[in-house]
Design a binder for these strands. Sequence first.
RNA 1: GGUCCUGUGGCCGAGUGGUUAGGCAGAGCUCUGCAAAAGCUCGUACAGCGGUUCGACCCCGCUCGGGACCUCCA
Length: 486
Amino acid sequence: MPKALRIYNTLSRTLEDFTPLHANLVGMYVCGPTVYSYLHLGNCRTFSSFDMIFRYLKYAGYKVRYVRNITDAGHLEGDLDEGDDKFAKRAKIEQLEPMEIVQKYTQYFHDVMRDFNCLPPSIEPTATGHIIEQIEMTKELLSHGWAYEVEGTIYFDVEKYSKENNYGILSNRNLNDLLDGTRTLSGQEDKRGRLDFALWIKAKPEHLMQWQSPWGMGFPGWHIECSAMSKKYLGAQFDIHGGGMDLISTHHTNEIAQNCACNGVAPVRYWMHTNMLTVNGVRMSKSAGNGFLPDELFSGSHPLLEKGYSPMSVRFFMMQSHYRSTLDFSNEALQAAEKGYARLMTAIRLIDTLKTEGDSNDMVVALRSKCEAAMSEDFNTPIAIAHLFEGVTFINNVNDGRERISPQDKINLKQLYQDFVFDVFGLKEEAVIHNNKMDGVMQILLDQRAEAKARKDFETSDRLRDKLLNLGITIQDGKDGATYSL
RNA sequence: GGUCCUGUGGCCGAGUGGUUAGGCAGAGCUCUGCAAAAGCUCGUACAGCGGUUCGACCCCGCUCGGGACCUCCA
């Protein structure tokens, strides 16, 4: 029996008890990246958040099928009939085939996911791999009158849909407000209604990515892929659908409309949305030009950064805020996270060396319950982390002889940190740059220095320390001899 | 203009009708030849004004500020 869980549902805008469609099984779909350029940190935050959610669902005892798509076709600039798709545009700029663009940025995406220690999803379907399914769905919608064709392009009829359905159910807006807010854009004359959107788009002859369809050569609209693929792998109705908040009003709204019209049933029971990453209080986005590339963050090459931050420091930084809150990026915040993360990891490493004595108490058990309670309340990672830091103080106190721990509690404590820090939060030890030769050379120097100190020749010992420091090597004197760090 | 979210101590960031969030920074202490590192301990807070209440940072209203979406974006 999986652990009870409450999830904030965008549909109801409240916390709801989570009940999966099929006991013990969870179907989760998350909108993946459009691989026409490098993804930035904002994207990483969303994928890391859902990675954590995926991991906790498994911890809680569910069997999860996690589907995250790759959008590699059909994404128009500005959603206009006339627009180029993003891949075609990028292909021209980089002088590559569109599929080379797709390959390049998919690869980059996967590399970054690995850097952030995100587990691969159960299924990672691509839009180009599901053209047939998208055509089938479009046919289905056409045949029931939910869509219409204008010269080889198929549009979804939002106003017709709205007569029987609540189109703005997810964004909590009514049709008139939506119509008022819609600007008249050039190139949309073919559409009957201003909110109508394309399911299938007629391709111009020079267009590089196009497929045969009943309506001639063309390519799919953006929204239809998620509808088609989620249906194929998770069914017409499934448990969780996730994505960034920015997808609510257009992409997910249209997805719901397509699914409801086609399948006669609301596709998703729990809609989950992650909040935006901000820089100086403003949303990080490609168009705003304030996007951080993962590489720039790791290396510190971005102008706004004073130094580089490791992937795990950044992941920890993200886990220290709730997924539905905006998270602001700054040097100070990143440095605080980096140090806090180091403290946490140091304490975890210490667990194995703890001396045990006495009887068990319920402290460790209570700590686990507190972490579970936090996580079961809409995946509240910051609270769980706060509890884990209480444990850090405890570990250090045991280490300093101020507290004691029983053998069994020590095993439980180790398991607790394994479960939450590594398995649920998805953090890991980062390799330190050490090798045998370096260690050997350093040991010689440390021995020399120890000898000097033994003779009370502090001039020599301090000189060694200072010179090494100039090279970026810090000496730490401890009770059991000195160690160094780079 | 419409639909929402938000305003917590030096910084980041949780949360609750009456009880410690947590991290970083800061202060004190321990360790140390000195230093660094590490560890322990400890402050300062809930935008403003009203209201509800025995009691509000937490509920309600207003004011002011910040942000998101309504156009591609996780």
